[in-house]
Nucleic acid binder design. Structure first.
Lengths: 147, 147
DNA sequence: TTTGTTGTAACCATTGACATTACATAAGTG
DNA sequence: CACTTATGTAATGTCAATGGTTACAACAAA
């Protein structure tokens, strides 16, 4: 399976919030148009980001505030906020291998450390990118285009 | 989403094939009991592994042969064989961000290189483990237990 | 020819993703 | 206080993938 589009949508949201800061109010409707989906989809993801403590959403009036310095929020923080699955396990292990078979009895112990290290390799790389990288590159590229 | 259990099942299959080699015939029924699932599930995965050229399955008579030296088959080979979806892309990007929005127009270009490097980090780690590691550790651990 | 096994088709149930409508709730503003 | 604008969330629907199950034709060896 693939990692759901909630992750790229969340990154898209943060990019919009920063890029349009001061220029226009970034609402779930505005974001839905940019991302090309339904406002409710956006609100649900905003809810996940709020619950994770990454943003504060103004009810009634609208508008999104990021709670931490952008350089302190990594892609992994965003991933964990929106992709909260099966207890953080990337790999779905087949449940209940047979305890009557020597291999079945030991397959978990044999594989677990390897699967964890693979997941960690992915997560470590996710930690290398922050929302500030994204903001900086977005502004740089869009400035270049508007020349 | 999680990576499907086909991956851990496939690794379980290879471990059984090696561990029971010479001792008993490893059929889809035998494997289904060890893995605790249905023989058809096993046959479907065997089909994917065959199509990827990793094994040969004897029709009629039963039995599985690995086509390459175990040290030459990495976890990534197995992963690619059974988890071949969405054009090898780990991340599902939201389709059709708005071309009318400066962010929507550029979000793909901004994120793609980062997403690819994250996926590569995972795949590089997967390459570090081979089926021979698995075989060796399985035999070592089971020998220890039978003392 | 009989037996054991694989390859597949045809279903079914469950789950998660994403979409959509509807509406109560919460700010601000005139 | 009403009005306007947004958010939060429930309810519902569609679709695809996973995993399970039964059934049976094709195949190989004794």
């Amino acid at each position: 399976m693939q990692i759901s589009s909630r992750f790229t949508i969340a990154l898209h949201i943060f990019t919009c919030v920063e890029y349009f800061k001061g220029e226009c109010k970034v609402t779930s409707d505005f974001l839905a148009k940019s991302i090309n989906t339904n406002p409710v989809i956006i609100r649900r993801i905003l809810g996940q980001l709020s619950k994770a403590g990454l943003i504060k959403v103004a009810r009634g009036t609208g508008g999104i505030d990021v709670t931490r310095p952008l350089g302190d929020i990594t892609f992994l923080d965003v991933y964990r906020a929106v992709e909260c699955i099966g207890g953080d396990e990337l790999f779905h292990f087949h449940e209940n291998p047979s305890p009557d078979c020597p291999v079945g009895r030991n397959i978990h112990a044999l594989l677990d450390d390897k699967l964890i290290s693979i997941q960690e390799a992915m997560e470590e790389k996710m930690k290398e990118y922050t929302l500030d990288d994204l903001r900086r590159e977005a502004i740089q590229e869009l400035d270049r285009q508007s020349l």
